Lab assay of single mutants.
Amino acid sequence: TEEYTYTDKEKADRAAKEWANRGYTVTVTQDGPTYRVRVG
């Protein structure tokens, strides 16, 4: 499991979509002003 942190919702959504397109399980959680994209 890897985790990426973004401050921009659009970038987080785009990253999540790209990982999902590659067949990974993706979870996006909002943590205050940041968005965490957990992959795998």
Rank of each mutant, 00 (worst) to 15 (best):
T1D: 10
T1W: 15
E2H: 15
E2G: 13
E2I: 15
E2T: 15
E2S: 14
E2A: 14
E3I: 13
E3Y: 11
E3M: 09
E3F: 09
E3V: 13
E3G: 06
Y4G: 03
Y4K: 04
Y4M: 05
Y4A: 04
Y4S: 04
Y4D: 03
Y4R: 04
Y4I: 05
Y4P: 02
T5F: 13
T5C: 13
T5N: 07
T5G: 04
T5A: 08
T5M: 10
T5L: 13
T5H: 09
T5K: 06
T5E: 10
Y6A: 01
Y6W: 04
Y6G: 03
Y6C: 02
Y6D: 01
Y6N: 01
T7V: 09
T7L: 12
D8I: 07
D8P: 01
D8A: 06
D8H: 06
D8V: 07
D8S: 13
K9P: 09
K9Y: 10
K9Q: 07
K9I: 06
K9W: 13
E10F: 10
E10I: 10
E10W: 12
E10K: 10
K11N: 10
K11H: 12
K11M: 14
K11E: 15
K11Y: 08
A12V: 03
A12E: 00
A12S: 03
A12Q: 01
A12H: 00
A12W: 02
D13C: 15
D13L: 15
D13N: 11
D13R: 08
D13Q: 12
D13W: 15
R14M: 11
R14S: 11
A15E: 06
A15P: 00
A15W: 06
A15S: 06
A15K: 06
A15V: 10
A16D: 01
A16S: 05
A16V: 06
A16M: 06
A16P: 00
K17N: 10
K17E: 13
K17L: 13
K17Y: 11
K17A: 13
K17R: 13
E18K: 08
E18Q: 09
E18Y: 15
E18W: 15
E18D: 10
E18G: 06
W19M: 05
W19G: 01
W19Y: 06
W19E: 01
W19L: 06
W19C: 06
W19D: 00
W19S: 01
W19I: 03
W19V: 01
W19N: 01
A20I: 14
A20T: 11
A20V: 11
A20L: 13
A20W: 08
A20H: 08
A20Q: 13
A20S: 09
A20R: 14
A20N: 07
N21D: 14
N21L: 13
N21R: 14
N21K: 14
N21S: 14
N21W: 08
N21Y: 09
N21H: 09
R22A: 11
R22D: 04
R22F: 06
G23Q: 02
G23M: 03
G23R: 02
G23E: 02
G23P: 00
G23F: 03
G23S: 02
Y24N: 02
Y24L: 05
Y24T: 01
T25D: 08
T25Y: 12
T25F: 12
T25K: 11
T25R: 10
V26A: 06
V26P: 02
V26D: 00
V26Q: 00
T27N: 07
T27P: 00
T27Y: 09
T27I: 10
T27W: 09
T27E: 09
T27G: 04
T27D: 06
T27Q: 08
V28F: 05
V28T: 05
V28G: 01
V28R: 03
V28N: 02
V28H: 02
T29P: 00
T29S: 09
T29W: 14
T29K: 06
Q30G: 05
Q30V: 11
Q30P: 05
Q30S: 07
Q30A: 08
Q30R: 11
Q30I: 10
Q30D: 05
Q30T: 07
Q30Y: 07
D31T: 07
D31Q: 08
D31L: 08
D31E: 12
D31Y: 08
D31W: 07
G32L: 03
G32E: 02
G32Q: 02
G32H: 03
G32I: 02
G32V: 02
P33L: 12
P33Q: 12
P33G: 13
P33A: 12
P33N: 14
P33D: 15
T34Y: 15
T34R: 09
T34N: 12
T34C: 12
T34F: 15
T34D: 05
T34I: 15
T34H: 11
Y35D: 00
Y35S: 02
Y35P: 00
Y35W: 15
Y35E: 00
Y35L: 03
Y35G: 00
Y35M: 03
R36A: 05
R36K: 13
R36N: 05
R36S: 06
R36L: 12
R36M: 08
R36Y: 12
V37I: 08
V37D: 00
V37K: 00
R38K: 10
R38I: 15
R38L: 14
R38F: 12
R38E: 07
V39S: 02
V39H: 02
V39E: 01
V39Y: 03
V39D: 00
V39P: 03
G40F: 15
G40V: 15
G40N: 13
G40E: 15
G40I: 14
G40H: 14
G40L: 14
G40M: 14
G40R: 14
